[in-house]
């Protein structure tokens, strides 16, 4: 068998781990001491447990990555839900619109421009970036401002490692992000739901925080278009809308940059948008959330459960005022 002639760690793209396996990941890991044996066993388990829906899902290329942080023991939200229930208004306002319409997005070739208050402004080619950065899987909770949540195995790297490469100057206090703004690729841009392009921002210390990730995949595969291909932000202690998708530009700036939702409705969405069950939103109580796949609500955790790691960033700040 060809695979035996390769080093132990080598994984062909066609060996993308079946999703059913990811759902039983821990079980699978205990059952396979060696990766080679794991592949055989995995194939078997996959064949036995794969449902037609799994088999029919278009297999995006696998990403070579290591297993990193798992921040919750909660069950992972199935791939179908993560890739089928999205807020990505550039492709329509219904939750199923992005999955239906994002086929027009062309995630290759793609350039991520990083400039502003940096010593080394750089235009990163996405493929070069993927090669240069060690990719890691991290299981994070995602809490949407609308009151639902998921648990997602993202694949990516810390935003800090990219920022260190461009060397922010002493003037850099914030990072401003922008999504692609191309009507030919994003049919939803024709409706002025928001002032396009979608823009977001973080304070530099938030951006440098080790939990803040640039994500290029989920469930071990390349990021589906509807989830913000080819590269997106994930800030797990903030409401989902902060985690901007399909990023083309990242600018280090001195002043707090405008953000799309706070520009659209300043009384509803602030710059910080930290998950906070005690600060109620004008539309939705934030005390509870519905985990996708569950009928009833569960309590929302302060900073989405990441208080131990991030509360220090906001010491002394009135979080009801800076919402």
């Amino acid at each position: 068998m060809l695979i035996r002639s390769r080093p132990d760690w080598w994984l062909p793209e066609r060996a993308a781990t079946p999703e059913s396996l990811y759902l039983n990941r821990r079980q699978w890991l205990t059952g396979s001491g060696l990766l080679g044996a794991g592949l055989l066993g995995g194939g078997l388990v996959g064949a036995l447990t794969a449902t037609p829906a799994h088999a029919a899902a278009p297999a995006l290329p696998a990403l070579r990555h290591t297993k990193g942080l798992v921040t919750t023991d909660d069950a992972l939200t199935p791939y179908e839900a993560v890739s089928g229930y999205n807020n990505f208004y550039e492709f329509g306002t219904d939750k199923t619109d992005p999955a239906a319409n994002a086929g027009t997005l062309k995630p290759r070739p793609w350039t991520l421009a990083v400039d502003g208050e940096v010593s080394k402004p750089t235009r990163f080619d996405i493929d070069a970036l993927l090669k240069a950065m060690p990719l890691e899987e991290r299981v994070y909770r995602l809490r949407c401002v609308e009151g639902w949540s998921m648990v997602i195995p993202w694949v990516g790297f810390p935003l800090a490692s990219l920022l260190k490469q461009v060397e922010p100057t002493s003037k850099a206090k914030y990072v401003a992000f922008a999504t692609l703004n191309d009507r030919t690729q994003m049919p939803g841009l024709r409706a002025r739901v928001l002032d396009w392009p979608y823009v977001e921002g973080l304070r530099l210390d938030e951006a440098m925080h080790p939990l803040t990730m640039l994500v290029v995949g989920l469930y071990g595969r390349v990021l589906p278009n509807q989830n913000g291909a080819p590269i997106r932000l994930v800030v797990p202690w903030k409401y989902g809308f902060k985690s901007i998708k399909s990023i083309v530009s990242l600018k280090l700036v001195e002043r707090q940059p405008p953000t799309s939702w706070s520009r659209s409705a300043p009384s509803e969405y602030g710059f910080y948008a930290n998950v906070n069950p005690k600060v109620s939103h004008p539309r939705w109580s934030q005390a509870k959330e519905r985990r996708i796949g569950e009928f009833f609500r569960r309590d929302t955790l302060m900073f989405n459960g990441y208080a131990a790691e991030v509360a220090g960033l906001y010491k002394g700040m009135n979080l009801a005022r800076y919402y």
């Binding site: 208004y89 306002t93 409706a191 002025r192 739901v193 928001l194 659209s264 409705a265 539309r283």
Partner: peptide
Amino acid sequence: LLVKGNQLE
């Protein structure tokens, strides 16, 4: 009042 952003529906 319920919908987010400027939506037509």
